[in-house]
Design a protein around this nucleic acid. Structure first.
Lengths: 125, 125
DNA sequence: CTTGACTCTCCCCTTAAGGGGAGGCTTTAG
DNA sequence: CTAAAGCCTCCCCTTAAGGGGAGAGTCAAG
């Protein structure tokens, strides 16, 4: 099938597919003349990419995996990818919590200042 | 003082200051000829912007506040800004937790699949 | 044979917060 | 007076994931 049909089948867009190819996510895409031709397996790969995106992966994270082994055939790779992602996500959440704590501390300082003087212009800067 | 000295005093850069001005964060900046001239109060404003960034605010969030009232003189505005930010941060954290849960569920599905067949190529796509 | 639907490549646009640098004034110190 | 340092505006570059569209080629049906 051609790119438009593949896009419809995978629930993505023509532009996105071309983009994935340009990033090396699809490996070598076969052609008939100048037209890209996709197999059912390609469509499955496109769906997998969509899944991965929904799980919060970025395309660059997938590119590495594509180059190392066959993702569709080897779930252990996907499993590993998820574990890596989970680690990063945990770090990100910790960072947000730290930020929230800073925010709270700052708010409290302001509150204390305002308590003493409603128009305080403090050393908070 | 000129822009370079102001940048040094506020712990930022010349480029950044010009950028803030272009975003309307500094209000009208006075000039001597073509050179920008900054007061001590401007430097304090620059420091405040830096603080706000460290707290996770984006410049666009500050722009609104700048246009509504004098941030340096009115801490209630800053307080309000922080509360808004906290709300958004809480939502962001919740989103990350949801994402983590999805990730876990997907990982578990893969684990179950691999348990039955080490080379499983499942309906997980 | 022509029209309309698809496809091709190529280029610019989007957010955030500036960084790098070109080319050209201005100011200050020696 | 001259040279260095500092300043000016203007333009392009960066990340991520494509979107929009131009201009041109291709394919099937009527």
């Amino acid at each position: 099938m051609y790119i438009g049909q593949a896009a419809k089948a995978a629930g993505t867009t023509v532009k996105a597919i071309r983009h994935y190819e340009s990033l090396g996510l699809l490996g070598p895409v076969s052609r008939q003349g100048s037209y890209r031709v996709f197999s059912q397996r390609d469509v499955e790969l496109l769906r997998l990419i969509k899944q991965a995106q929904a799980l919060g992966f970025r395309l660059s994270e997938l590119t590495e995996a594509m180059n190392s082994t066959d993702v569709v055939a080897n779930w252990r790779t996907v499993r590993q990818l998820i574990d890596n992602k989970r680690t990063r996500l945990a770090r990100e959440m910790a960072a947000l919590e730290t930020q929230m704590a800073h925010l709270d501390a700052y708010a409290e300082r302001i509150d204390r200042c305002l308590e003493q003087d409603p128009d305080c212009v403090g050393p908070l800067i």
